[in-house]
């Protein structure tokens, strides 16, 4: 069942000299994990804003095509209504934090869903625990480190429990272990609870193996979409300057993709193939 349908979407910001999204078609099924990547400025964030209705509702500009999220046509429903079904973590979440304490920040969303007090509290506590920042609950979001702020934004989203999570480079300020643990949480929500995940990332080595599909945007257009290994081993991405995992680079140098048809994404899989172990 499709939970997101993007049909013939084109968009230009007010006064933009060229379209920032051009004729994008994309259907995401409920429970899918879709990775979106592409060069800086290609339109990843713009696409995210289209998904949660910020575009065109708050940005204006020239919008054409249709975006339907869980049955809601984005042009006909206010952003707060869409937000209950599709939660978005912004690329630079610090700018979105406005409460006096970390705990209030994370409780804010559930409170606005008019949930009972106990439920609000337990959701907030759980979300803080999941991203590993329970100890910061009484701190002001201004008085914590950059990575800690990013974790607060992720916790605030998780506490809302939306059916679709859209995360715009959520790991950019996280240390590697935290990044891996946040990504593992997303993978778990996806496989165990059927939450649909749309993740924008440059660091493909950390996520490619988790995704069902990988989409590559270039200059506003959806250049490629397919299974992560097909996409990362395609010639088109080589020329684009996106972050091809090292395991893929080494495998390509050994002409794996073309010769043997084997397309490992992780170093473990590559090593297994090289050493003739399990495949």
């Amino acid at each position: 069942m499709a939970i997101i349908e993007v049909q013939g979407l084109s968009y230009s910001y007010p006064d933009s000299p060229k379209p920032n999204i051009l004729d994008v078609n994309l259907t995401v099924d409920e429970g899918e994990f879709v990775l979106i990547t592409g060069p800086s400025g290609c339109g990843k964030t713009t696409l995210c804003r289209c998904l949660n209705g910020l575009i065109p509702n708050s940005y204006g500009g020239a919008f054409s095509g249709r975006v339907v999220v869980d049955g809601l046509l984005t042009t006909e429903h206010p952003v707060y209504e869409i937000a209950q079904r599709l939660g978005l973590v912004f690329q630079n979440p610090e700018n979105e934090l406005f409460c006096t304490t970390v705990e209030r920040e994370v409780a804010f969303g559930p409170e606005n869903l008019a949930l009972p007090r106990g439920e609000v509290r337990s959701r907030a506590e759980e979300a803080l625990g999941v991203v590993g920042i329970s100890h910061l609950w009484d701190k002001s979001p201004e008085e914590i480190s950059g990575g800690e702020q990013q974790k607060v934004a992720i916790a605030a989203l998780l506490a809302m429990k939306p059916r679709v999570l859209v995360l715009d480079e959520p790991t950019a300020n996280l240390d590697p272990l935290s990044a891996r643990s946040v990504l593992n949480i997303l993978a778990k929500l996806n496989t165990e609870s059927g939450v649909t995940i749309i993740l924008v990332e440059h660091r493909l080595e950390m996520v490619a193996h988790m995704a069902d599909r990988c989409a590559v945007l270039d200059d506003g257009k959806l250049l490629l979409i397919g299974e992560p290994d097909e996409v990362l081993y395609s010639e088109a991405v080589d020329r684009m300057g996106i972050g091809i995992p090292k395991a893929v680079k080494v495998a390509k140098r050994l002409s794996f993709g073309s010769k043997s048809g084997k397309k490992p994404l992780s170093s473990r899989d590559l090593a297994d193939i090289i050493r003739g172990g399990k495949q």
Binding site: P39, S40, Q91, E169, G241, G243
Partner: peptide, 14 residues
């Protein structure tokens, strides 16, 4: 430079 590579694709990093 505090976290100069955030948001950069690999071509920009190079």
């Amino acid at each position: 430079l505090d976290e100069p590579t955030t948001g950069q694709d690999s071509r920009q990093k190079i």
